[in-house]
Computed example of a mutant assay.
Amino acid sequence: MYTFHKEERLCSVKLIQSLFHNGSSFVVYPFRIVYQTEHATEVRAKVLISVSKRRFKHAVTRNRIKRMIREAYRLEKPSGLSVYLSQSPKSLHFAVQYIGKQPEAVLPYLREKMILVFKKLHDETARLDS
C-alpha cells in the first residue's frame, strides 16, 4: 500500500524527453509539476523527482530533499493519486521538480503540498479529458 517500487519511477530517456517536450505544467510551491497522460499501462503512474544542481550546490542537500519528496509521495499516494487513477482509464507520467529556495524541506510541509499536487493533477487531467 505505502510503496514506491522501481516500476513507478520514470527512467526512460524517451519518456522523459516526451514528457518535457509535450507535457503540461503547473506550480504548487515548492514544486513544479510537468505531467502527461498516456494510454493505460500496467503501472498507472510513473514519477520523476528532481532537484536543481544550480540552486543546491551540494549533493548531500539535493539527495536529502529528494528523499523527503519521495517519502511524501509514498505516504500520500494511496489516499490521493491511487483514488484518481482507479477512476481514470489512462496512466500518468509526471515530474516533480523542487523549486523552493530553502533546503530545509520538512516532511509534514511536503506531505501537505503533495496532497495539493494530487488534487491539482486530478483537476488538470480531468479538464484535459473532457
Rank of each mutant, 00 (worst) to 15 (best):
C11D: 08
R64Q: 02
Q17A: 12
Y29F: 15
R62W: 01
S79V: 07
G80W: 05
Q17T: 15
Y109R: 12
T41R: 11
L116D: 13
H58D: 14
L116R: 11
V13M: 13
T41D: 11
S86Y: 08
C11T: 12
T125C: 05
I99Y: 07
V47H: 00
I99Q: 08
H93D: 01
K119S: 15
I65M: 05
R67V: 02
K119R: 15
H5W: 08
K120D: 10
Q36C: 00
Y35T: 00
K53Y: 00
K90W: 10
S25N: 08
E8V: 02
I99G: 01
R70A: 02
T61L: 01
S24C: 06
Y109H: 13
P103I: 06
R67I: 03
S88Q: 09
A126G: 14
Y35L: 00
K53H: 04
H122V: 09
K113V: 14
Y84K: 14
S86F: 10
V60D: 01
R44V: 03
R127L: 12
E42S: 07
R32S: 07
H21N: 09
K53P: 05
K6H: 05
L48E: 00
Y109G: 13
R64S: 08
P89H: 05
I16N: 02
P89L: 05
L10I: 06
